[in-house]
């Protein structure tokens, strides 16, 4: 119990003192996960909507894969990206292994199926309601996709948040492809793992609290954004 109290107070003092190392770690975590989710959204929303709306060869298989890959183990994704980026791998020449770029790539692959599969479901449901109306207005396939994504924007935010939660909280993928190098690729989750294994529970707990606060903060911000937008645009 005492440990816990001591840990809390040390965590608080690190945070309130804006400890430089801690801020660096938090900053990198946010940068990596925001970039990863941003990329996954850019690719995943149209991909999910296409799976929901268009008939093309392999569509059923793709849909099933996206669903199955929602639960991909981060360490496996990390391993695959590691193999691709390692010196002998197909993308080895890029020299990305153990850089933040590698971590962004790994998290993006982890989040992409979540964003795509959830948005496929959301767009498919919305399309039930919209399909005849949009066809009546002579909207082409691309126009229908854009319209449904836009009209589903509030529901789709949930998919994006789910993806962000996954990215910011995972440890396995960034550990493998980033290497948890101080001042270079150390993020909150890998730092927590390291500090815990060193018995440095206070720091680990402090980081854990920050992680939870960030997840909460991002969700609250998204909800506030949505409430602000809703009355005006229905």
């Amino acid at each position: 119990m005492n440990d816990l109290a001591a840990a809390f107070s040390q965590a608080a003092s690190l945070l309130l003192g804006f400890d430089e190392d801690l801020m660096e770690i938090i900053g990198l975590s946010l940068r990596v996960s925001f970039m990863a989710v941003g990329l996954a959204v850019l690719l995943g929303l149209p991909l999910g909507a296409a799976v929901a709306l268009y008939r093309f060869p392999g569509r059923t298989v793709l849909g099933a894969l996206l669903n199955a890959f929602m639960g991909l183990p981060p360490v496996v994704v990390g391993l695959v990206v590691y193999l691709m980026l390692s010196r002998a791998g197909p993308l080895g020449v890029l020299g990305l292994l153990f850089t933040p770029a590698a971590m962004i790539l790994a998290q993006c692959l982890l989040v992409l199926p979540i964003v795509a599969a959830l948005s496929a479901q959301i767009v498919a449901d919305l399309s039930e309601e919209y399909d005849e109306q949009l066809r009546s207005l002579a909207a082409g396939p691309g126009q229908r996709l854009v319209t449904l994504l836009w009209d589903g924007r509030f529901s789709l935010m949930t998919a994006v948040l789910a993806g962000f939660g996954r990215a910011i909280a995972e440890v396995g993928a960034v550990m493998i492809v980033g290497g948890n190098i101080a001042h270079s690729t150390r993020v909150m989750t890998t730092a927590i793992a390291l500090e815990t294994s060193k018995g440095n529970l206070a720091l680990a707990l402090g980081l854990g609290l920050v992680l939870i606060a960030i997840a909460l903060g991002v969700n609250l911000a998204a909800l506030a954004l949505r409430d602000a937008a809703r009355p005006r645009h229905g």
């Binding site: 005849e132 109306q133 009546s136 207005l137 319209t147 009209d151 645009h233």
Partner: peptide, 26 residues
């Protein structure tokens, strides 16, 4: 040709944007 449905689907945007929508499409 155009059709007004028994239960019209209005888009999640302003009234004016709804009317503008088919014109944008064209």
């Amino acid at each position: 040709q155009a059709m007004v449905f028994q239960r019209p689907v209005l888009l999640r945007r302003s009234a004016a944007a709804n009317v503008a929508y088919p014109l944008r499409l064209r």
